[in-house]
Design a binder for these strands. Structure first.
Lengths: 127, 127, 127, 127
DNA sequence: GTGGTCTAGACCACA
DNA sequence: GTGGTCTAGACCACT
């Protein structure tokens, strides 16, 4: 067995920002909070905030203008990919763990189809 | 956002033992490894091993006979419940996270039904 | 006119390491100094050393094994590319500046061909 | 390794003025901009501008007439020397760095001769 | 104000 | 020992 270790904070924040992008709370071209603001929002250090934006930039999700700010990339396509990736990871993890518990695909389908629909879903603008 | 913190080791081991029960690798009435052996298997401290059996006992999953050993409960019903609980947790987590990503139940059903069936599943004796 | 600004230390060190690779002082698969050692050698902070290795890793020039060390990539091809890139930059910079001074290609060729050959070149094992 | 430090601004401006002289944009005997104008053009402090002219004067490249202005020296010979010096520095730096990368003089000649000729060179009146 | 770099020092996980 | 993360605080360049 492998012990699960804690995800580094900077990755957790990245995950959270990615989710906001997918949910449409952050849109292509939007200005992201300044490093200082991000540090305050997430109660992290400014250096950690800087690393987060550096990593996001390396992934092509945002770009930076010195003295101005950091902005989400304009290309919506890469955010659609992001959504597919996240969904794929969730699906794979779920199917494998259910399989380990002895559930067949049919059984899983049955469980999913019996799961209560999220009612009164807050209207959001997902990508 | 809430930061995810590491699960304590004793809980991770309990999860693993529960999975083995559900998978039928451990059967009702089976003798569990001694505290000393469990500590070795999972590379944990003997005190942690003792705590694990104490917790499992509190949940009614096993009982201890001094000088003899620790044994899985005979009542298969509570292990079936266990399976349902674990499956329920997985299902809930999956559906909620997919929902947050903007997937409807129909979309999820479609993804699940398109997921490749685990072929050549090792023959196991799940409860 | 644009004022030339100081290259960040971490980039200067990266340049130096790249040069050592091209010169064959560091070979594919070699273990690089530990972060602590690099910090001492270059009189920089450990965090800066870590960043240097992180950047080199992002560029595919090395890989890291936690608790073990950082190693140069095995693929010699990417180091050959590195040499070509560095040479291309130098060439471009030189030709353009000479051009700005009013030298034609013929004049430059004449100057280069009149430049004294490096005598007694220390035998090195360049890629 | 030695860390490269930023060139002082006044030296950078001097380099730029020298380049303009070599390029013939400034000719022997020409009146140079007033200290005030130079400060504006290069976005520098007037004191820095004054220092620049003082240094240029020390090198014999210009002379100052109180109340009239600063003028480039009449003697074209010293500007020819300037051009040779600059070219020599560039050449030396280039040859040495290419040598460090493992390029022989032949290889360098081949690269230089393969470098695309600057086409449609703006007609300039280099010394 | 913005982002970018650097340091000093701490703690953790892995081996 | 190794690398990985995080913090606190500083200074710089750009606008």
């Amino acid at each position: 067995m492998e012990y699960v270790t804690e995800l580094p904070i900077y990755l957790q924040v990245i995950r959270d920002l990615e989710k906001k992008i997918i949910q449409g709370k952050l849109k292509p071209g939007d200005r992201l909070p300044s490093g200082r603001d991000l540090a305050v929002q997430y109660k992290i250090n400014q250096n950690t905030a800087a690393r987060i934006y550096r990593e996001l930039e390396d992934m092509g999700y945002c770009f930076t203008r010195r003295g101005i700010g950091t902005f989400l990339a304009e290309d919506e396509a890469i955010f659609r990919m992001l959504k597919q990736e996240r969904a794929g990871e969730l699906l794979k993890g779920f199917m494998e763990e259910m399989g380990e518990l002895g559930f067949t695909k049919e059984a899983i389908l049955s469980l999913v189809s019996g799961y209560p629909e999220k009612k009164g879903a807050e209207k959001e603008n997902h990508i």
